[in-house]
Amino acid sequence: MKFAFLILLTASMALAVDKIKLVSTTTDLAWAAQQVAGVHAEVRSLLNGTENPHFVDTVPEFIRLVGEAHIVCLVGMELEIGWMPKVLSRSGNAQVQPGGKGYCEVGSAVTPLEKPTGAIDRSMGDIHPAGNPHFWLSPKALAQASTAIRDALVRVDPQHLADYTKNQQALAKSLEDLHQKNMARLAPALAKLKGPAVIEYHKEFTYFFDAYGIKSFGSIEEKPGIPPSAGRIAEIAVAAQSAGVKLTLAGEYAPSKTLERFSELSGIKAERLATSIQPKGKNKGYIEFQNSLVETVLAALSLN
């Protein structure tokens, strides 16, 4: 009996060791990575979905987790530039640093939106030269990103290539189905609109709007990452009201006083929403999270 137990224990330990350890920066990438990796990987996200991924400290615990990882997936497009380079180098883990086979910058697989042209500098705010990095709010863009996750898994664990390929295809199909379903829900309401229906605080819903053909009036921020001045709030509030905008979308971490002032001046309702999957509440999985975003827009258009 003891012998059998030892065999079982050894076997389970061997299985545990065989599993790929994949660490992602965001919960959305973790979700996609788990879908692609299936049973072959243990996936963990450094962030929990409530943070603003632009502004995160180099938490030592992140260094520990990355030090043990076989694959590290980042959004890329300079979203995590303020903290991940230090996490990666301090981990002393060559495999997951740029150039290593476990380094996976998924943004490189996505068709970028709002890629700046011409000269850029910091007087223009927090501009990302590679384009807007908030792509995961579009199911289509997340499907594109999942190919980079698949490629990283295949590089590290080529023996399961067939599984990873099959899983990535299944994920892409499910995301396409989700997109089609929500498109059908939104289409009648959007067809009745003549102008832009929404405005965002920071341009983090841009890919979501693009995926569903939702016309946006722009952002309350005049320059990305720079809190708007009182003058800018007043100016954009009047303009958005005149254009018939019905809803303001903002991340949960957007400044509440700014949003309140904007709503007061424009009469446009502001919704502070999760911008990533979260461990608790109604946004536990990507499908729930995406449906929740769609329902918020539908409710604002009074056609739900």
């Binding site: 990666l88 180098s89 301090r90 981990s91 002393g92």
Partner: peptide, 9 residues
């Protein structure tokens, strides 16, 4: 280097 010796810089 942080890429030469595992877990080391």
């Amino acid at each position: 280097s942080s890429r030469l010796i595992p877990r080391s810089r």
